[in-house]
Design a protein around this nucleic acid. Structure first.
Lengths: 219, 219
DNA sequence: ACGATATGAATGAATG
DNA sequence: CATTCATTCATATCGT
């Protein structure tokens, strides 16, 4: 989403202290009536820098702490904000990238290969784009290898990867009957609720893809 | 835990018994083709009750069966949903702590599984805030379990700390009064409001390699 | 002011 | 058990 560069729609250019309090009326000091974190430009700048210039995509809890501590200089921020920011940033970048080439052709801006995605004008049909059964995760490396010294300079780092998502939707507009999602066919969806499962069925923990057999223990 | 005032979340309430469409002819894709389980308030409430009041964290397959069977009264649900719910809830609770560094001093007494800290006001928002006709979560009869099993070892362990979750009791007819407040005190927010931290701003992570970028600029 | 978009937040699902 | 992905809701912000 937000390409490394600036573009329209910042909130303000207060590169100084913190500007969080946008509670216009009154402006309580200690009561952050702001429902959600509104990052300052400095914070965003740093976050983007980490994201693009340092390849940080999914910081660990440790990193999150440090980042948030660092960003706290510029305004109120908490760990979850950092966490969510990276999550969202990554997700949206991918999401938008994914639309490139599927059912959407509206590409007026002619995606420049060497440039930022520049807030696509295309209208994402996030309003009703149902059924996305893209669950094929290639075993590609996430590219999040903590390469401390990557590009370390401007320019979009190799952050992005291939991620070929074929967008293979099965057009299975399942009618909302009783069955739900029978992914993989055979694990969880014991849709035969009507019937009685006489067996203790400890295959409950049998995930669609056998990964670790079973558990049977709790913490 | 959560920031004070939040309304969030959608309004998805399945019909308790039968939420189907016109099955068969025509198909008629019913809306909400959400491929994923959307818990009802009652379901959430019960789950949290189990989690907080009964200390259920990683229910066994048997427990999952019973729990899901019971929750099915309030909407469609499958075992895996229960499984995932507990997994996620637990994981996220932990995660929050990690991010914020365990500095949550918001745990005065707590640890009373069957008592709700009076400190919490009527703020029972906690999470799902459905605003629909079906929002009534008062005294639903919790005794009419049509569980196929008479054992009914639905968790009901001593929450406090060590849950021996493994053995039967009577039915957990505990009065499902609302209690599921965050006894753990964990929370994303509120860990430290003083944004003083005039401290090392150039100390992000422990870069294993002394070559971590300066984030001084971006454009 | 509204509507559209951008984006923070939440959470189900899945993978390792 | 932790980490990540996907999807969706909620809301702040900008454009008109």
């Amino acid at each position: 989403m937000e390409p490394p560069q600036h573009h329209h729609h910042h909130q303000a250019d207060q590169e100084s202290g913190n500007n969080n309090n946008k509670s216009g009326s009154g402006g309580y000091t200690c009561r952050q009536t702001s429902t959600r974190w509104t990052p300052t430009t400095e914070q965003i700048r740093i976050l983007k820098d980490l994201y693009y210039n340092n390849g940080v995509r999914s910081p660990t809890a440790d990193q999150i702490q440090k980042i948030s501590a660092r960003l706290r200089q510029y305004g109120k921020i908490e760990g979850k904000n950092v966490f969510y920011w990276f999550q969202n940033h990554k997700a949206r970048e991918r999401q938008k990238k994914r639309f490139n080439g599927t059912t959407m052709a509206t590409t007026p801006t002619s995606s420049s290969p060497n440039s930022r995605p520049a807030s696509v004008n295309v209208k994402l049909d996030q309003e009703h784009h149902l059924l996305h059964h893209n669950k094929s995760y290639p075993s590609f490396n996430n590219g999040n290898l903590n390469h401390a010294n990557s590009g370390s300079e401007c320019g979009a780092v190799n952050a992005s990867n291939g991620y070929m998502s074929s967008h293979v939707y099965g057009s299975m507009e399942q009618d909302c009957s009783m069955s739900y999602n029978n992914i993989g066919g055979g694990g969880w969806s014991n849709m035969d609720h009507n019937h009685h499962y006489s067996a203790p069925a400890y295959n409950f923990f049998d995930r669609p893809k056998p990964l670790f057999g079973l558990e049977g223990h709790q913490e």
